[in-house]
């Protein structure tokens, strides 16, 4: 006869692992409840099985990517043309770097990519994106610093279409979700772009720093208030931070995680893999 209760010691250990990975108390409790329910129902017999259940239940909280089972999320064959991707997030999370890496991946697959430098605020932000453009070999549309970000975005879409671009990626300034004016500006950028191309942006990607703790949940909440968020990228997972907060976010807001950043070079972007991500949380 198998044990139908998970013992406290295992649960304590589990709690420590999850909390230490930034999963957060609420989501951790949720995972533990799910496991207890599963164990109650299935009557687990050994620790190995429990381990598998645990991973499955954790992974189940991560929202599905709607584009069903794309093996390679860098694959963009069935997308509308041009596909406009706008990248948002708080300060310093890795937006510009992720854009450089994405441009490289799309370009490698024979797509024509154009970048729009709509961070006109942070010192040398335009230069940074231009250097990425050079590095990867894609054009960057810019109006220089301290110009209107909406006009830059508009122009990037317009010029991108003239250049027959497949993908247009718009960089935006880092902004804390507590700054109302800056948050409203995102809505404005979107509206201005839509004047030119009504379906744009086709995707708004929010970038999260993998070392961020529970504040990331509030970031997601506040950004989704001003614009739909279609995908998440989680960066800096090449360090010791686990990025576990994304589980609760993906669950609560039903946003799929698309990519992970694993370094500062142009090849350091990977397609998100649920099971690998969950396994990394439990790696000793």
């Amino acid at each position: 006869i198998g044990k139908s209760k998970v013992d406290d010691e295992i649960l304590d250990e589990l709690e420590e692992i999850l909390i230490s990975s930034d999963v957060g108390v609420e989501t951790t409790v949720k995972i533990i409840r799910r496991i207890e329910a599963r164990v109650e129902r299935d009557k687990y017999t050994n620790v190995d099985e429990l381990d598998r259940i645990l991973r499955e239940e954790t992974a189940a909280l991560l929202a599905e990517n709607n584009s069903q089972d794309v093996k390679d999320s860098f694959e963009t064959d069935n997308l509308p043309k041009p596909y406009v991707l706008m990248v948002v997030g708080v300060n310093g999370v890795g937006k510009t770097t992720t854009i450089g890496k994405l441009a490289h991946q799309f370009q490698k697959r024979g797509k024509k990519v154009v970048l729009g430098a709509a961070d006109t605020f942070r010192a040398a932000a335009v230069d940074q994106l231009k250097l990425w453009g050079q590095r990867v070999g894609v054009p960057v549309i810019e109006h220089g610093m301290n110009t209107d970000p909406s006009s830059v975005a508009f122009d990037a879409v317009k010029k991108g279409m003239e250049m027959n671009a497949d993908i247009i990626i718009i960089d935006t300034a880092g902004r804390l979700h507590t700054k109302v004016n800056l948050m409203n500006e995102l809505g404005k950028i979107k509206r201005v772009v839509q004047k030119f191309l009504p379906d744009a942006p086709h995707e708004v990607m929010m970038v999260l720093d993998g070392s961020t703790g529970q504040n990331a949940v509030i970031q997601a909440r506040e950004f989704t208030k001003v614009t739909e968020i279609d995908s998440l990228t989680i960066t800096k997972l090449d360090g010791t931070a686990k990025g576990g907060v994304v589980i609760g976010i993906s669950d609560e807001f039903k946003i799929p995680v698309k990519y992970i950043g694993v370094g500062e070079q142009m090849d350091d972007l990977q397609v998100f893999n649920k099971m690998e991500f969950v396994d990394s949380l439990f790696k000793k």
Partner: peptide, 10 residues
């Protein structure tokens, strides 16, 4: 960064 989570100690 004040938003840093559990990894801050490492």
């Amino acid at each position: 960064d004040s938003m840093t989570g559990q990894d801050a100690v490492n």
